[in-house]
């Protein structure tokens, strides 16, 4: 068992629910690897400390709301037969049909008028939102170029708050995935790029095609798994091709290969 495989078993180990064989392998690894042992002990203490967050009792009014919901549902079930009668009756009356059509026309005109007024008002809101978005882009770009990994992580978080990031921000995230020294920052960048996977880049191609290329460059199994998940979500041909390549390569980490194969099976793309 190596350091990265060990991480997969730690939470179960802390809860004492890990099966015998992986537990023995993990303990053998922890006995020889000082850094993993230290991290496992430190995180176990933190994991246990999380148990201090107590459960809270929900408000008693919730039960009343639920009982009302059930009563309404039962009443609605009883009245549905009457509704069915109304539905059958309605279309056969030409006068009623005419009245309904007139009423719909009037409501449509009124709604159209109201919506036009709303659009004018929403123009100012849109301008304000644009300014906030532009400030966020600047902050995200600046943070992504910092020396400290924590700052770069914050930069990724900022970029995630921008509804439609500029191409510079998207490129900075792709560069982070490809070249950042810290695995956590790369993982965060992959997560942030997931929602942008269909975006077209000014240099040609899409974000997901760049993520597909990034998969072959990665040396960290954690990042590879995150990229596989992201590409699988997008279901795009270039992503599936990249995952299939990983699933067939004997040189990649066995856990990553197994994950790629499982993903391909799940989405029904057979490995030739």
């Amino acid at each position: 068992m190596n350091c990265e495989q060990a991480t997969e078993f730690l939470p179960e180990y802390w809860d004492s629910v890990l099966d015998d064989i992986p537990r023995r392998e993990l303990e053998a690894h922890l006995a020889t690897c000082h850094s993993c042992r230290e991290e496992a002990l430190r995180l176990k203490a933190f994991w246990m400390r999380l148990g201090a967050i107590p459960d809270e009792a929900p408000n008693a009014a919730g039960r009343g709301r639920f009982d009302a919901l059930l009563s309404d549902y039962k009443r609605a079930a009883r009245t549905s037969r009457f509704d069915a009668f109304l539905e059958n009756w309605w279309p056969r009356r030409p006068v009623a049909q005419m009245a309904c059509a007139m009423a719909t026309l009037v409501v449509g005109l009124l709604a159209g008028h109201a919506l036009t007024v709303d659009v004018q008002r929403s123009g100012e809101v849109a301008r304000l939102q644009e300014e906030v978005s532009s400030t966020r882009q600047l902050v995200a770009l600046s943070m992504l170029r910092q020396q400290s990994a924590t700052d770069r992580l914050k930069g990724v978080d900022w970029s995630d708050q921008i509804p439609r990031p500029e191409p510079q921000v998207v490129n900075a995230l792709l560069e982070t995935v490809n070249y950042d020294d810290t695995v956590d920052v790369r993982l965060a960048a992959v997560d942030a790029l997931r929602r942008l996977s269909t975006r077209t880049l000014p240099t040609g191609g899409t974000v997901r095609s760049q993520m597909a290329s990034a998969l072959s460059r990665q040396d960290s199994p954690l990042v590879q798994i995150a990229l596989i998940d992201a590409l699988a979500d997008s279901r795009a041909p270039e992503g599936l091709t990249a995952i299939r390549r990983v699933a067939e390569l004997n040189t990649v980490n066995p856990a990553v290969r197994a994950h790629a194969q499982a993903v391909m099976e799940r989405i029904g793309a057979r490995i030739q």
Binding site: T7, P11, F46, L187, L222, I225
Partner: peptide, 8 residues
């Protein structure tokens, strides 16, 4: 399992 570890 990997996600839980990353999260903690």
């Amino acid at each position: 399992k990997v996600r839980v570890y990353r999260a903690v």
